[in-house]
Structures are given as C-alpha cells and as structure tokens.
Write a protein that binds this DNA or RNA. Structure first.
Lengths: 343, 343
DNA sequence: AGGGAAATCCAAAGCGCTTTGGGAATTGCG
DNA sequence: CGCAATTCCCAAAGCGCTTTGGATTTCCCT
C-alpha cells in the first residue's frame, strides 16, 4: 500500500492525505480522522526512502563502533549505550544504523555515510587522545556528537562525558581517608581519552597527599577479567604490595577480586578495591549492597542523553555545540575498609 | 555532488554514468575508467535513498534486539554477534539497522520495518519456545533468519544455532566419566529456547546414566554474575551438595567460582565446573590454558554466517530456507577434575 | 445579498537514482 | 563499397513521497 493507492481509496489527492498524516493545519479535522483511520486499517506507513528523498533528511543516525584492531575487542559497554540511544531515536522517529569497523577503515566509513547521505548525523564512540575523527567530521560538515572527549582538540564540538578525572580523584581521596597510602591503578588503555583522564585524577590525588606515583603500581591494558587478575597477582607479590586498588572496569574488578582471594586475602580488609561501574544491565554490582565500592555512572543514561543532544544539533545546525559533564556517584560497598595496620 | 552534476561535468548522460559505475557491459572501457576516476576525485557515491527508491531494495538488514522487559537486560552476547554480522554486511554493501525494543512493542516494530520498506530482511534474536515472531514474519512476508531456533514451530524457516542439546549432554557425560554423580545445572531463563535445549541435553545425560534429575540442583534465571554466585552458594549448603556444576554462561561461571572459593573449596578439585563459552571478545576464558572447561562456540562466527544466510535468502526468495547447526567444542580447562571421594 | 477572508482541497514539479526503448556511430564481411 | 550487426550512448519515464502555487468552496459581516 502506498500513498497513491491510499488516496485513491479515500477519493482524496495525495497532497491532502500526506498533509493529514503529517499534521499540517490545512486539513479539516473530519478528513484527518478519516485519513488516519484508513492508514491504520490498511497498515500504511510512508516509505522511508521516498520520504527521505523528498525531504532531504535521512531520519537516521549512524553509530560507528571502533573495533580495537589488536584484540578485536568489542567494547562491552556498547550494548547498553546503544539501548539508551535507541530509546531516544525511537521516540523521535529516527533509525539507528550501525557500523562496526576497525580503526584503519574508519575514515572511509564516515566519508561514505556522508556522501551516500545515509545519515543525518553520527555518534563517535571511544575517542582517543587527539582523536583525528573530530577534525574529519567537522571538515565533512557531518553533524556529530562524541561519547567522551578528545583532549587536545581545539575547536568546540558536542560531547557528553563522565567526569572521569574527578571521579577517580575522589575515589583515591576516599582511600586516603581510610588510611591507605599504597594505592594501585588498573586502568584501560591510556591512548583512550577516558583512561588518560582517570589516571590524571588518580595522580592528582596522590600528589595532593604528598605521594609520588609509583610506576610499579600502575597498569594499563584492555579491561578484561584476566587483565585485572594478572595485574593484581603481579602487584601483590613484592613486599610493598598495594593496600588498595583503583580499577577502571567492573569486569577487570572481578579478576582483581579473584587474585586477592587466591592469595588468601580478603577484599575490603586486606586489600581495598574501588572500581568504576558503568551500570551495565548484565553486570550488576551485587544486589542491594554493592559488592564493590564504585564510581558509578549509567552508560545507558549517557546514550539516551547524547542521542538527544545530537538530535537537537541536527534540528538547529547553527546552535553552538552542547556539552555535558556527568558526575559519577561514589557508592560505598563492601570492598573497601580501613588500611590494614603494618605490624 | 549528485549523478546529474557528475554526468554534466563529464559531458555524458546520467544513464551512461550510472551504467559505468554499476558495471553494466554497454559502456566502453575507456569511458568507464574516465567515469570511475571522476567519481573518485569528486567523492561521489549514489544516495542510498534514491537508489533504494529506484531499485525497490533497501540494501539494509534490520536487527531487532529484545530487551528483557523484567530486568531491562541487554544480552551481553549481542555486541559480538553484531560485530560478526556487520562484517558480512559491509562486504556486501548492506547497512545494518538496529532496534532495541521491549517485548511488548516488538510486533509493531516488525510491522513498521515492513510497511516503511526500511529493510530487505531481519535477524531474529533470542528466540523463545513457540516464539510468535516467526509466524508473524512469515505472514508479513519479510525475509528473516533466526539466531537460534524456536521449538514448537512447524513450518521451515532459516536459522543458525549451536547444538545446545548435544553440547550440554556431552559436557554432562564428561563429568560422569570423571566420576561425578551429583551434577547441578545453572541455566538461563528456560522460556528461552536455547536454555530449554541445554536442559534437555543435561537431563538426557543424567537419565542415560540412570540418575533422576533433582530439582534442587537445577536453577534457571538471567545469567548474571550474581545469579551464578547465589545459586551456587545455595546449592553448596546441604549435605548432598553437587560435586559438579554445569553453567550456561561464562559471566555466571565467574559467580560460581566466587561462591566455591568463598566456601574455602577449590574449583576443579572439590567442585568441577563446566560452562558454556560464547567466545566473547571482552570475556576471554583465560589465556593459553582455559580457566574453565567449556563448551565453546564463537557467537561472532555465528553472526557472520547467519548474515550470509539471510543475504542468500534475499537474493533468491524461492530457495528453501537454509539452516545450520554448529557443534560446540569441549575445551578442557582447569575447572574440572575427578569427583572427590566420599570419605 | 455581496464581498473578502478562511478553510479545504488539488495538480504538478521535484528529490536522485535506475532502466526501458531506442538512436547514432562504428565495425565486419562479402 | 554497401549493409547488417555491434558498440556506445541518450532521453525520458518512474520509484513514492513532499511541497509549491493555486483553485474552489464555505463562512462571516455588514
């Protein structure tokens, strides 16, 4: 069923039917109702392609997900982020189109989306330090919004980020208050902008407490369970093992806990752990009482909001880029406690 | 830059340029080369919408991801599956469009995709027992392929599935061979078809060893870490605790291990564990030696292949539906060992 | 009753592409 | 050299929608 057939069926012109369906005022309430009802019974919706062609809009947003080329790792937060963004799109009648792409071909993908006019805008995932994509997208004049930020890029652009620096500073401060002095950091890859900022917050806290960061207590890698486990096992070996660990991901934190318990130590007593928690739907941090003390910020909310920002920017292209900084909340669980006394 | 401009620029008709670009034979090699070069320098690609409108194809595949309405849980395997499917689409010039949707509105989404002619086909995720979506899609005449199967549906349809039944039967058999007699099952939600089949395999193995399934040793729920932990903790309490546990997901298995170790027991010695492993990129089962003995099947491969099947079905609509049954491999890790002797 | 404003509706152009149905130029062959 | 067969290219229609620029009808006031 298409517009032509529907309008013939109703004895109206295509114009009138189209206007009735799109809420234009120059249609009497009676006809509008008649048209809407017919559309429903014939199960008619306008063809996306034809509509897009006629209006010049794509009514679609592109998400380009980078695939870490080394380990072929798909970021585990991406499912929940997408779920949030998808909600927003659905509400506004937009479609989400997805490309998962290794770093090498990313540029070509953006150019393709632009020249094929496949999307009205894109969301940039996983920004790195000095990420070249932002410059590229501005040059292409393709509207975009970044989940995270790219330190080192000069001009303004739309982004939404967790305040990673303050979250990790606050977490480290919290550990200092509990009496910890040797605090380790198990971080994501530090080419990633978020990891860099977390490290910044961590070192800032150390320094404000008069402690020099010890390279032996800082690890950086892809945030798997095994990575958390191995890093922790290594660090717990020497005499001056850390009494507390700051961890960048709940998945790695599971490995941290495993290494601690394997050593016969108790988490929250012998070694305190704070992790960042993206509030992923399939990885809840315990039940009512969180297992891990965590800096928490829902990545699904982030998806919802960033999508909203991008749609705004598309609706009004002359707007100055919106930005939004979310503060993570510190949720105290049972994985932290006072630093053990040295005997 | 559009076709018209490009063809004017070249002093050719739109027809010729279009044909040159699409590989039609009635264009001289010289002109073809000239056209291709011009397209490259002007960075021209045909508009997806216009092309789609003209050809009647969408050049897009829809993925409708169900959001477990109760816990709002996004299936953690979905990122890797999508990554695999996306590879196939990219190779064939297709786009992937995504909707994440709660069960209630799923029907409307499929109908919408169909009536808006937004996609050429869809992939069905997370089929349940007697899943109504399959009948719906056949009625809509929208080509589709299912990741998994729906027991209880009569007519043939395209699917790709892991042989869950044989995998879990084999895993249980393996445990029997090691001398285990009390084997527990920590399963996904048993409305999900895959979970049902796994249970089938499990009970088949028990019965073939002359053992009646004990409801006290069978749990079913959403496969979180906490679910694995709590189920295991509960089951390890009574005197006749299981000596082995079959687990449906690596994430839950992490919880299983935690509960075991918390009890002061050793996994692989006091309690053996076998888990299913979807080979997710962010959840590797250890390094060279797997931590968990596991039935393993890459969900990313599944994505690649299912996408291929769907594209075939779209290319030739009269083909009888393809199906594919993948066998999981049993990888022996350090989480299994001989049943502890009763003293 | 008569005039203009308001309310309704419509025909046709245009969005950017593919494709049908030729037409003109070139080639091959007797 | 002449004619048919190729080769190469083109004009125009059509995909399903929106939107411009009227045309017609109804309504309200004086």
């Amino acid at each position: 069923m298409n517009l032509k057939e529907l309008s013939q069926n109703l004895g109206l012109s295509q114009t009138t039917v189209s206007r009735a369906l799109n809420g234009y005022p120059e249609v009497s309430p009676t006809t509008r109702r008649r048209v809407e009802e017919a559309a429903r019974t014939f199960n008619y919706s306008p063809s996306t392609r034809a509509k897009g062609l006629a209006t010049g809009q794509a009514l679609a947003i592109g998400h380009v997900i980078p695939l870490s080329s080394k380990h072929e790792m798909v970021n585990p937060i991406f499912g929940d982020f997408i779920a949030g963004a998808g909600e927003t799109y659905a509400r506004h009648g937009y479609e989400m189109i997805l490309s998962i792409v290794d770093d090498a071909s990313e540029r070509r993908i953006y150019e393709g989306l632009k020249s094929r006019r496949a999307v009205d805008g894109v969301v940039v995932h996983g920004p790195r330090m000095d990420d070249p994509r932002i410059g590229l997208l501005q040059a292409l004049e393709l509207p975009f919004a970044v989940h995270g930020r790219a330190s080192g890029y000069g001009k303004p652009y739309a982004w939404l980020d967790v305040n990673n620096r303050s979250a990790f500073k606050r977490a480290a401060d919290f550990l200092f208050d509990l009496g910890h002095r040797r605090i380790a950091l198990i971080n994501g890859l530090e080419v990633m902008d978020f990891a860099h900022r977390r490290r910044d917050g961590y070192t800032a806290s150390l320094q404000s407490h008069g402690i020099d960061p010890d390279p032996a207590l800082m690890r950086s890698g892809e945030m798997t369970e095994v990575f958390g486990y191995q890093s922790t096992r290594d660090m717990l070996k020497p005499d001056n093992a850390p009494t507390a660990i700051l961890c960048s991901s709940l998945i790695s934190a599971l490995g941290v806990r495993r290494a601690i318990e394997e050593k016969g130590l108790t988490m929250g007593k012998d070694v305190s752990v704070i992790t960042h928690d993206d509030a992923l739907s399939y990885l809840q941090n315990g039940g009512d009482v969180p297992i891990f003390t965590a800096t928490r910020s829902s990545v699904r909310d982030a998806g919802r909001q960033l999508a909203e920002m991008l749609l705004n920017a598309i609706a009004d292209p002359h707007m100055t880029p919106q930005t939004q900084l979310l503060e993570a909340e510190l949720m105290v669980g049972s994985s932290t406690g006072p630093a053990p006394r040295k005997d």
